[in-house]
Design a protein around this nucleic acid. Structure first.
Lengths: 329, 329
DNA sequence: CTGAAAGCGCTAACAC
DNA sequence: GTGTTAGCGCTTTCAG
């Protein structure tokens, strides 16, 4: 059962034409006389010929593949980014070469450099600070960054500062005064998020208490909960770095006998699907993850087609109020 | 800024050796005399040479890429499969070419066939029934199926029948008699799941009432809830096709004023991460999604290395009892 | 419209 | 150890 697949030469022989003609036919490069076209069609499907994409790629330098690096596919935010990116890619006949960096920064650069050689362009989500991302300019492939960048690389991101500003505003409106932020300092946008909340509180003459989760995960949220809630400065409301941390936080709060939202209001960021199915439903900010993936891929494909759209595109966050936040008793 | 990247010939020239020598050096195929090795090293990094993987692939026929088709990356079950598969792949220096079929069966076969030409092997998750999957044998690439297959194709799956049997048993033990199954008939394994639950109930002289969700999603679970709970045969317990449906079901139940688990016990299948963070926590069956991805990838890589492990590997489900199930009042 | 010929960048025998 | 020589399967001038 080791049938060697037919090459363009076999087709040419069978159809009694030259390989060049076959090549042009396959690529729809021009029109043909009726008899030639008929013979080609015939030869191709009796042989079951399929052109070898590798050989074509070597010559054209195009692979119809987009490299996508993601920090952690388990995080629904990134899952949605992939979903959106995949949708647009398939629509344009591109396929995704996916690399889940899996939170190990060390391998990031070599992985991306290797990836770059095998794709037409890249979508990159990375924790690398802008200063250390210059090398991406040397990849000689179009890149779109999944974040807000100051670099001369097109990017798609979210206004994180506004996101936390909105959450802080919402909590202030509910009458909260002691508001804490449970962050994740290894994320580049953590500072932005702190700034947004701080600004808002400052306008009310208040300060933001800052706590740290050791990972952007539910488990880390659970583990941080007692530290935040049973410490000396128990907050009335907690803004979490993301929804996963918030969900973990809420679960552990329940275990500790702390009621949400009666005893503490909790918010996340991302609007992951499961925030709506938690109880109480999680108040959060929608950052349009799937649209981010779509837009980033669209920008990349446009660049590939010779219509680069440089600069940073920023999505505006949208507040989603559910039951995890409430007025001060 | 259009620097054409150096080829193996440039390196050979710069180092004063033949291209064959360079090729062997790059591939670490043998040892070299000290002076040659030094010159090669020198030439390679002054030129910044990187071998072109496309050219290599064309000759060797190997791409170090694994094709992975998934039904819906948004479903945490599949997300975890990807996570596991990616981990093993990276460990062996393979990369994933991901295609999210996105629940549109029509494009499945052509997409997979195209994918097969560009990869060394495939991991396939598909809704195609075994009878219509014969063509996969003709892909001329090793394939591992992510399901229980009767085909002569290696596969990794879960004992679905046992999963629902266990859930039914658990519910019977809690004293439930009127037990319903909320399924998703387009899934191949739906029948297996029905059978497992039915068998268990039959042993107790009971029958299973069957309802249908129109998709394997939370939204579909929400929409099905009133149909199940406000119909003529209100069940005491509901076994849902998967966790997403169960989560949606529980949410809508709360909206309808039906208490879980006091008024109805609910279970899912999959053990997605967010089942633990719902309230009440979702009783479910762990199907080891991530391990499935790992094992499937390992089987594929073994096959690629000439150590095929044919046959079906089946994971055993594990019951996870949380708060969404309770004894009859 | 069709074909001949020259490679793309690399590997793989096989000599030396 | 190192070099020579064929190509892999395809696209792409450039003639006719």
């Amino acid at each position: 059962m080791k049938k060697i697949s037919p090459t363009i030469r076999d087709v040419a022989a069978a159809a009694g034409v030259s390989v060049a003609t076959v090549s042009k036919y396959i690529n729809g490069a021009q029109r043909f006389s009726a008899p030639v076209e008929a013979k080609l069609k015939e030869a191709i499907d009796t042989l079951g010929y399929r052109s070898n994409p590798l050989a074509r790629s070597m010559i054209t330098g195009k692979t119809r593949t987009i490299g996508l690096t993601i920090l952690d596919i388990s995080n629904p935010h990134f899952t949605n980014v992939v979903k959106g990116a995949n949708r647009i890619a398939l629509r344009h006949d591109y396929t995704l070469l996916l690399v889940d960096i899996d939170e190990q920064q060390a391998r990031e650069r070599p992985l991306i450099e290797a990836l770059a050689q095998r794709v037409d362009g890249l979508l990159v989500s990375s924790r690398l600070p802008d200063e250390n991302a210059q090398w991406m300019l040397d990849l000689d492939k179009p890149v779109v960054l999944l974040r807000n960048a100051e670099l001369p690389i097109p990017s798609v991101g979210i206004n994180s500062r506004l996101a936390t500003y909105m959450l802080a505003r919402h909590l202030l409106d509910l009458g909260h005064r002691r508001i804490a932020y449970l962050g994740f300092e290894h994320a580049r946008i953590n500072d932005e998020r702190i700034r947004g909340a701080r600004e808002c509180l400052a306008e009310a003459g208040l300060e933001l208490d800052i706590y740290e989760a050791h990972a952007p995960t539910s488990l880390a949220g659970e583990q941080a909960c007692s530290r935040v809630m049973l410490g000396p400065k128990r907050p009335q409301a907690v803004i979490c770095y993301n929804d996963l941390i918030a969900l973990g936080f809420m679960k552990e709060a329940a275990t500790l006998g702390i009621r949400v939202p009666q005893d503490v209001s909790v918010t996340g960021i991302d609007n992951v699907p499961y925030g709506a199915y938690a109880a109480p439903g999680l108040t959060t900010v929608d950052i349009q993850s799937e649209h981010m993936g779509e837009l980033a891929m669209q920008k990349l494909i446009d660049a590939l087609a010779g219509h680069p759209d440089p600069g940073n595109s920023m999505f505006e966050p949208r507040l989603i109020v559910r039951e995890s936040t409430a007025s001060v008793a």
